[in-house]
Amino acid sequence: MGLLHLIRRVMIVGFFVFVYKQAGAIEEPGERLTVYNTNLSITIDALKIKGAASNANSCIIPFTLAGKLIVVQGRADTVQGNFILDTGAPDLVLNNTYFRNYIVSTSNTEQEASITGIGEQSKRITVKQFQLGTLSYSKTYADVLSLGHLEDARGLKILGLLGISLFKDCELMIDFENRQIHLYRISKKEKETYIHPLLATHPRVSVMPFELRENRILVDTKIGNKELQFVIDYAAESNVIDSRLPEKVLDSVRVTGRVLLTGTGSKKIEAATGDLSAITIGPMQFKKLPVIITNLENTCFGTLNCINGVLGHDFLSGYTLVFNFVTRKLYILY
């Protein structure tokens, strides 16, 4: 069987509609229902696909965790060290403690008042070369901000955050089990055909589209028959749901306690923790997802709609996720 042919066949499998049948009582947080593939006649032959080779377009980067945040090594011009994968941030962010001596190309001088009145000034600079594994980025824009509070909270030197724009022409796989990130830069030629070798060999893969809005990853979800959009954010340690959602949605959340969260300017904000009894994400259903229930009023971006919730580490760390930013498809391996 030719490689290309095989890949096409695997892609077909990936797009098949899955049917779900409820398994017995599932108590574990985030545990999923049993998934049945309707098209069992298609089997995947033993595959001999070469693993992703490390070259200028492809690499595997090991990661560690700081609390629940994913830490990888990167280099911005001459400074090398810890970067946090932040799929909730649109662009590369650099910590101004270590990147002060750059010429600012544009400056957001508008002091946007936050809840405590403390404004945040962001400056945009150009990094000559940014290196992530074997992938190089020339003349990359970066927002320079203070990340001092985050360093204090995590006890770790943090050079910056890796936002979505770095991955826009890539496939990004985040493998929690092996603590690895796989990055593959998809060329124009293979735009239609490329798929991660693992997606061909892995026995259980679910696929769904995602939307990129202002460089945030949004997926369609359903809670209590209501359609909602959630952001996938690896830098959010918890899953989050908006406390302003209709009763029909909040009926699915059993409150487990009150919690005080640290808002901007160190102000303590009252919120609740809870268990979401069931959520459908794309074609998959999950039971008992731990969530923070909080007011997401100020998380609206631009003129577009607000987000309804966030899928964070507490959900994401249980699976391997593959984002194809070219085809805007998300694969969940379970």
Binding site: A153, G265, A271
Partner: peptide, 27 residues
């Protein structure tokens, strides 16, 4: 319930969405 503020700086969001647990006391 009030909002945690405008997360203009992404690190504010990270701190906000982290529930303190005994696990990270040593850090």
């Amino acid at each position: 319930l009030t909002s945690g503020g405008k997360f203009i700086n992404p690190s504010d969001k990270m701190i906000f969405y982290a529930i303190p647990t005994p696990d990270n006391w040593r850090v």
